[in-house]
């Protein structure tokens, strides 16, 4: 398993549109992905679960990837979050 810490820069956090964007990207990754915010661990492949984590702007989260393509997937997810998810 690989992981990386990252800060969310989206102004109103991971709400509907950026969360949907991330879900689409995560859906294409083969590894099991988990976003960790404090005590909460969520699967970003579900936009509902992702939104229910209430990840806000400035939150530090850890992205974990586990699976055959974990290195690549981690890079993809981190790059997507860093880019602001289309906002």
């Amino acid at each position: 398993m690989v992981s990386q810490k990252i800060k969310v820069i989206n102004k109103s956090g991971l709400h509907l549109r950026p969360a949907g964007e991330l879900t689409k990207i995560a859906g294409k990754c083969l590894s099991d992905i988990t976003l960790v915010k404090g005590e909460k661990r969520v699967n970003p492949k579900s936009v509902l679960i992702l939104m229910s984590a209430g990840i806000m702007c400035g939150d530090e989260i850890i992205v974990e990837c586990d699976g055959p393509t974990e290195e690549e997937d981690l890079k993809t997810i981190v790059a997507a979050i860093e880019s602001g998810l289309g906002e």
Partner: peptide, 16 residues
Amino acid sequence: NEIFAAHVELAKDIAL
């Protein structure tokens, strides 16, 4: 209307 693009994702949501 781009808001529905997000709704499409929600409608397909695996957890739901």
